[in-house]
Simulated assay, not measured.
Amino acid sequence: MIRAAIIGAAGYIGGELLRLLLGHPDVTVTAAVSASSTGRRVDGTHPNLRSLTDLTFCAMDRLGACDVLFHAGGHRAGMTVLPGLLDHGAVLVDLSGDFRLADPVVYERWYGVAHAAPRLLPTFVPGLPETQRKRLTQADRISVPGCMATAGILALQPLTAAGLVAGQVWVDARTGSSGSGGRPGEGNVHAERAGAMRVFAPAGHRHEAEIAEATGVEVGMSVTGVEAVRGVQVLCRVRLAEGVDERLVRDTYRLRYADEPFVRVVAQRRGLYRLPEPKILAGSNFCDVGFALGGRGREAVLVAALDNLVKGGAGNAVQCMNIRFGLPERRGLDFPGLHPN
């Protein structure tokens, strides 16, 4: 059995990691670390886990030995916590934003602070199986991309890698409230969030740096908070290269994702769910990608959707763990989502 421990286990991502790992046939959870909830039962904070575990949250000094250590703490926490755990003997999987960008100068530009452990940045492998599978088989330090970055990369990468996109890309993302985490804040209270479609990043969201780094194209990005709790949907507006038509776009997607266990091409001409819709992906590790052509066939809107807490976070991390330890990628991640929801 793989011994897994979670730092930041009281948060939404930490709760999803617990949900997935407690149901994983090859994993035993040895520690759920939370500085704010030490001594409390895990199922008091994550009530969906009632009867599934008797774990209590513990302090960092009770972490103990493990084979894989997930860090689900906030941004700027990973770069201070993880350097002290490099000799712990475990595979490290970081879900914060601290090791997603390889260049410390780029990191400081987007996160507003100097990186506390710049020498470690190049040692982390991006935790996106669809683009990094071979490297992940031997990676001891893994950095899971942001939820909107994951959706944007999976929508864009097949076309950019094939040279089918010309010029700058604009990514318009919509995200549910769970993407802001569980801590109270002025913009998170129900009276302010309910019924709102708030453009909280009209330009320059930090995930655009991740998308640009992964795809090699110039990216602009806007983000809108919507009333949903879970879910991310991105619309990537691109100009197609000369000679690219709908059939080539469709064939490129189908060929690229034919053998991917968690990416589905959804681009139908009819039906209520003819393009990717996060509503039906709640709880699942799938990312659906699709497209529609406009502008007399010279422009395209690439669409991707996922659950921000699963394929956009904890599920992606577990998928990376499965690859690293030589397990089938779908192990512990078979939940298909809900409909109706």
Rank of each mutant, 00 (worst) to 15 (best):
E299L: 14
V289C: 08
A305D: 01
G294S: 15
V303L: 10
I280M: 05
G290K: 04
F286C: 07
N285P: 06
D307W: 08
A282W: 13
E277V: 13
E277K: 11
G290H: 04
L309N: 00
L309C: 02
A292N: 08
G297C: 12
A300R: 02
V310N: 00
F286D: 07
D288A: 11
F291I: 02
D288E: 13
G297D: 07
V301S: 10
D307E: 04
L275T: 11
P278L: 05
L275M: 12
P278D: 10
L293Q: 12
F291G: 00
S284D: 03
F286E: 00
V289A: 10
L293H: 13
V303D: 01
L302A: 02
G294T: 15
K311C: 08
G290S: 09
E299V: 13
E277M: 10
F286P: 04
F286T: 00
N308H: 06
L275H: 13
L302M: 02
A304H: 05
K311Y: 06
L275A: 13
A300W: 03
V310H: 09
A282M: 13
R296L: 14
R298K: 05
G283S: 04
I280G: 14
F286K: 06
G297Q: 05
R298N: 02
N285A: 15
N285M: 10
R298M: 02
E299I: 08
K279A: 15
V301L: 14
L302T: 03
K279M: 15
E299W: 04
L293G: 12
I280V: 12
S284M: 08
L302P: 04
V310K: 09
D307R: 00
N285E: 07
C287Y: 05
V289T: 11
F286Y: 13
L281H: 09
I280W: 13
A304M: 03
P278E: 07
